[in-house]
Design a protein around this nucleic acid. Structure first.
Length: 151
DNA sequence: GCCAACGTTGGC
DNA sequence: GCCAACGTTGGC
């Protein structure tokens, strides 16, 4: 089992949206993020992170329910995520499906994560980090998870 | 709204 | 293959 963090702008797609139904994580157009998704397995656990919003931070947990498969929006000319270099025969971009697991009673804010010296090495907290899909190591996962309660 | 950091593109 | 220019991300 592996652990991950995925960012989403809640104005576009929030954990409340995920709660209603599983979703396919389409639209990732960054090689590093794509490669991380290709490394995901069914059952992998995901911190769900709200970015670019009022209360930035980890808001809950999701899990992978379908492993990486071609992102069809990449060859759809009407899609915002269209990439002319991708085709059904030779797909360039991939996505996974995730479903809701639980929501934290309070947002584990970015500011509070930064205050924890044990989390210093986290990729998320590195300056200038813009990756929308990143791995979380097991120690970090449990450290963070321990600080949370479910709704 | 600002801007630093980063990834990508394209000319050379 | 280098690197300047550009577009995007995302915290503040």
């Amino acid at each position: 089992m592996n652990y991950w963090l995925m960012k989403s702008e809640p104005d576009t797609f929030s954990i409340d949206d995920l709660k209603k139904q599983p979703t396919s994580w389409d639209g990732v157009r960054n090689y590093q993020a794509r490669n991380h998704m290709k490394n995901m397995s069914n059952g992998d656990q995901v911190f769900f992170y709200h970015s670019s919003c009022k209360k930035i931070g980890i808001v809950g947990i999701a899990q992978v329910i379908k492993e990486a498969y071609p992102d069809h929006t990449s060859w759809d000319p009407s899609s915002n995520y269209f990439d002319p270099k991708s085709s059904p025969e030779n797909p360039k971009w991939f996505m996974v499906d995730i479903e809701f697991v639980r929501q934290f009673s309070t947002t584990l804010t970015l500011a509070s994560l930064k205050e924890n010296p044990e989390l210093e090495s986290m990729a998320l907290l590195k300056k200038g980090n813009r990756l929308s899909v990143m791995p979380i190591n097991e120690i970090e996962w449990h450290l963070i998870n321990r600080q949370t309660q479910s709704n």
